[in-house]
């Protein structure tokens, strides 16, 4: 019954044999995380071995132990907090602006044929062209301050979200709109109580894409024009041959990325449980 979504929420399937003994189920449940951890451990171990045995030069390639030491140091000294806060705040601002702008705009465009026809090519172009090419232009327009970095985050996050919201608003079920009409719901009520919830799975799929792109946008902005942020730290430390510190900053970025992704996935599970098909 639900329309196809661009990237459907995670479908959690209960293991087939419900009558299987509890030990078996616990085994199934922990198998994937355990295997995942083993995979990461293997890669880190081989890296460490290569660095320790001199196959690669740890000055250039860093090493897991060196990076971990740098990471601990950066937390001990508190050096990590300022760039972390800077990156998180521009990602947060960028996402807030993108969400506040894209949801009403997308619903409006998706429900209005003329607006859709007018904006569709523009939005497709803006979505398809790698936003990084606009970076020099954006620096030219907005400078290299924190505002300019937020602009880049919005630029990168807005369009995937907008495209998803529009797709959702265009795929409303006719039958739902008819129910709304038969019961004499106002346009506002229809938008808020029918169009918005029906679009929510698309919105959250869009948010998930947008969060990923927002983080990339923030890091790219910091690499190129930063004076703050984790991207800037990576850039600075690498230039100074402090690869351990650079790797530590990258590890922090990785943790942020994974947490953001899981956070949105959790939101999807909580808010659009009704659209799951299991």
């Amino acid at each position: 019954m639900t329309a196809t979504q661009l990237s459907p929420g995670r479908v959690r399937k209960t293991p087939a044999g419900a009558a299987a003994p509890g030990r078996r189920r616990a085994f199934d449940r922990y198998l994937n995380p355990v295997l995942g951890a083993v995979g990461v451990a293997v890669v880190l171990a081989s890296w460490q071995i290569c660095a320790s045995t001199g196959v690669v030069d740890p000055k250039f390639s860093s090493s897991p132990s060196g990076a971990f030491g740098a990471l601990v140091d950066s937390f001990k000294s508190g050096d990590v907090w300022s760039p972390l806060g800077s990156t998180l705040s521009i990602v947060a601002w960028g996402m807030v602006i993108s969400i506040v702008a894209a949801i009403p705009l997308g619903l409006l465009i998706g429900r209005n044929r003329v607006l859709y026809a007018l904006t569709d090519p523009l939005i497709s172009i803006m979505y398809s062209v790698p936003y990084v090419v606009f970076l020099p232009m954006l620096i030219f327009w907005f400078g290299i301050g924190a505002d300019a970095r937020v602009v880049i985050v919005v630029w990168s996050a807005l369009f995937p979200l907008l495209i998803n919201v529009i797709a959702g608003a265009r795929n409303l079920e006719q039958s739902h709109l008819q129910v709304s009409r038969v019961f004499c719901a106002s346009r506002l009520m229809t938008l808020r109580s029918v169009a918005f919830p029906a679009t929510l799975p698309y919105i959250l799929a869009g948010v998930r894409q947008a969060v990923g792109r927002a983080l990339i946008g923030a890091i790219v902005a910091e690499l190129f024009m930063g004076s703050a942020g984790l991207g800037y730290v990576v850039q600075l430390k690498t230039s100074n041959f402090q690869t351990d510190d650079a790797m530590a900053a990258i590890a922090v970025i990785a943790v942020i990325a994974v947490l953001l992704n899981h956070g949105v996935a959790y939101l999807e599970q909580r808010l659009t449980f009704w659209s799951r098909t299991d």
Partner: peptide
């Protein structure tokens, strides 16, 4: 003053 019982239930899944 009129309401319709639809052929397909057309309930809002949310």
């Amino acid at each position: 003053d009129r309401s319709l019982v639809f052929q397909q239930a057309s309930l809002f899944p949310w």
